[in-house]
């Protein structure tokens, strides 16, 4: 086995070159390159984490905006409803007032008409009385030949009619 047979002749060379090579490997590659590569990997991981956090934040913001938007929408709807209700109430009041006014006018007209009617009736009644008195006087004169004064006839007719 040359590894053991040659050990006395070669150990110094093997140790020397092994330590030299390993020293270069450790300091140049192990300490230099690996740490740079690790730093790069870490930077990438951090960037990914940051981007994810930013995206998460943006989503939360968007959610907030959506909530705010629906709130504004609700407020606007409430306002519109209040306005509509107010307009309706005002319309109803107006209509009522107009109705009352019309009512008043109508009742005034009605009263006037009734008064006219009463007057006309009274006039007619008076007409009827005088006609009836004349007729009564005529009838009395024709039937009994007695002369009845107009005043007597009117009194008699009034008593019968009323």
């Amino acid at each position: 086995m040359p590894q053991i047979a040659q050990i006395l002749e070669t150990y110094a060379s093997q140790f020397f070159w092994m330590l030299l090579v390993f020293g270069i490997l450790y300091f140049v590659i192990g300490r230099g390159m690996v740490s740079k590569i690790d730093a790069n990997v870490e930077a990438r991981d951090r960037k990914i984490a940051d981007d994810l956090a930013a995206a998460e934040k943006a989503r939360a913001e968007a959610d907030g905006l959506v909530a705010g938007g629906s709130e504004a929408l609700n407020a606007a709807r409430g306002e519109a409803q209040a306005k509509a209700a107010a307009a309706k109430a005002k319309g109803a009041k107006d209509a009522e007032a107009r109705l009352a006014k019309a009512d008043e006018e109508i009742s005034a007209k009605l009263a006037a008409a009734e008064a006219d009617l009463a007057k006309a009736r009274a006039k007619a009644m008076a007409g009827i009385e005088s006609v009836a008195a004349e007729a009564a006087a005529d009838i009395v004169a024709k039937v009994s030949g007695a002369k009845v004064s107009a005043a007597q006839a009117a009194t008699a007719v009034k008593a019968v009619l009323s």
Binding site: E9, T10, A12, S13, Q14, F16, W17, M18, V21, I24, L25, V28, I29
Partner: peptide, 21 residues
């Protein structure tokens, strides 16, 4: 006084180092 000859073993150590590099 130590024999640190460059051998085929040393050569392959360097080859390995170069390959890793």
């Amino acid at each position: 006084g130590y024999d640190i000859s460059f051998t085929n073993s040393s050569l392959f150590m360097l080859v390995v180092l170069g390959a890793i590099w």
